[in-house]
Amino acid sequence: MIADFFAALFGVTLALILAPFLRTLINRTKARMAGRQGPPLLQPYWSLARLLRKGAVYSTTTTWMFRAGPVVTLATMFGALCLVPFGGNPALLHFEGDVLLMAYLLALGRFFTILAALDTGSSFEGMGANREAFFSALSEPALLLGVAGLGAITGSVSISGIYGRLGNSAFLGSHLPAMIFILAAFVIVYLTENARIPVDDPTTHLELTMIHEVMVLDHCGVDLAFIEYAGALKLWVLGLLITGIVFPVSTGSFWLDAGVSLACMAVLQICVGLVESLMARLKMGRVPLLLGIAFVMSTLWIMWVVR
């Protein structure tokens, strides 16, 4: 019990420290694919440090809502981080239905991000806010249904329970196709929620095509640092849901499990970087279709699980 707690605490600490590094991995991959050298390894940390040292400019249109957005978003990411298991160990907080709390905490953060964007009165940010709201509404069923599928396979209704039992090889044989479809759905949800290509382009400067980046156009300094950090944590939190499926092994040794999870997370980010290098962003009208595909894939487990 105590060991579990410290293990979970270790996982959370690791996330808090290493999450910004995930950006480096993605950016390095993209740079290599493009034949460039890429930014220094610690660039995200330097960026955060510089942002934290800056002053701020607030629009006269904005109210406390604009200032609350980044704060609440980061706080909800801390909350979500406490609910996701790391390396086969139960999370800091785990109970029946914790997946709902996690999903709805993300929704709470999004709710405030969207309102903060609308608080500026800028059309561009309104555009991004509305796309974010719509696309996340479409991706949420895929996430919750996918977890339900994993629950149906493992017989648990808590994320920690599910990911703790996935390591049991008995599930692998008969349920392998179901797991693959859920994994595919999760990957699409991952790219959507983290505003990556093919749904969103995190690097473009053209406001008309952006979703997440355009929502935070007016934020600067400390606020922007909070948002960037929350984004990094989101990469980590949702990434754990994927790495837990890909490498469900629990060897019994905590350090080995943690190492495997970290390696897996790194590979995932490299894959994200590869996707970004090899694909173009989808036309905005096509994104609902992609999310529809994710939803369909997250439903297919029912063919193997419910007979």
Binding site: A107, G121, A137, P141, L145, A148
Partner: peptide, 30 residues
């Protein structure tokens, strides 16, 4: 149960969109 989960999730997301619209359009901006 499978149907209910997906419906509730979709309703939840769309409701969030609906009420961010209400609050954003009525109370925020200029």
């Amino acid at each position: 149960g499978f149907v209910v989960i997906s419906t509730l999730a979709l309703i939840g997301g769309l409701a969030a969109m609906c009420f961010t619209k209400v609050y954003g359009a009525v109370f925020l901006g200029e």
